[in-house]
């Protein structure tokens, strides 16, 4: 059996409070995610779901334990190396889309590529392919405010996969959408997963979780299932 894409060993995230007092957000997390998994992280508010997601996405460095991603020991990497690995392997999808309001759809898709030093011609070609693939060519010159919520999330997902990541981290990707739009997005995730992209999503929805092949339940910072 091949190595997992992600492996967490005894990972903890602690916030210091008053004298000698600490608040544990994540406690002794041990987790393996195989390449091609579609994992849903569930749990009540304050369980540590988003913290886990941002830890995996290397936005948070204040944790302890061991974190391996594609054989790289993240806990041993310098911040610059982590950023480089993140840019190479991870795409993000947010609940509130987080598109840049002052950029067009085209420019929003172009942004991750420009940060990854793609050449101009590569960027043009990749953005054109992506627009085509998501059937949003006609919207490329529109600004996010001119799109519906579902369309915005579609662009957000397109932006997450444009740099060909191995892993998509999605924080409640359908939280702001109505049910039919949510279903479309989940279908899209399933399709991307089918193409080999590993997906980890945080969700409160059992229906959404059912689109994945695995559910992780968090409670008070512990993995309970």
């Amino acid at each position: 059996m091949s190595d997992p894409l992600i492996e967490l060993k005894h990972v903890e995230r602690v916030y210091p409070l008053a004298k000698q007092q600490f608040f544990y957000v994540l406690r002794d997390i041990n987790l393996k995610v195989e390449e091609g998994d579609f994992v849903s992280v569930m749990g009540p508010s304050g369980a540590g779901k988003s913290t886990l997601l941002h830890l995996l996405g290397m936005h948070d460095f204040g944790w302890t334990g061991e974190y391996f991603l594609s054989d790289a020991a993240i806990h041993q990497l310098k911040p610059k190396e982590r950023t480089s690995l993140r840019n190479e392997q991870i795409g993000f999808v947010f609940q509130n889309y987080n598109l840049l309001d002052d950029l067009t759809v085209y420019e929003n898709l172009d942004i991750p590529l420009s940060y990854r030093r793609y050449s101009k011609s590569e960027r043009t070609s990749l953005v054109a392919d992506t627009l085509d693939r998501f059937s949003i060519v006609g919207k490329k010159d529109l600004y996010p405010r001119q799109l519906s919520g579902g369309q915005q999330q579609l662009v957000s997902i397109a932006r997450a996969i444009i740099a060909k990541p191995k892993l998509i981290l999605a924080d409640e990707p359908t939280g702001n959408l109505h049910s039919s739009q949510a279903d479309d997005i989940m279908q899209l995730f399933k399709k991307l997963n089918g193409e080999g992209i590993t997906i980890i999503q945080v969700t409160h929805s059992e229906i959404n979780a059912a689109h994945g092949n695995r559910v992780i339940q968090l409670r008070d910072g512990w993995i309970v299932k």
């Binding site: 996405g57 936005h59 950023t83 993140r86 840019n87 993000f92 987080n98 598109l99 840049l100 309001d101 002052d102 942004i111 991750p112 940060y115 990854r116 932006r159 740099a163």
Partner: peptide, 16 residues
């Protein structure tokens, strides 16, 4: 701050 946080999340370095 939101715009800058998104850019950072999308891979922008501090220099960028």
């Amino acid at each position: 701050s939101r715009e800058i946080a998104i850019r950072t999340a999308l891979g922008a370095s501090r220099a960028v």
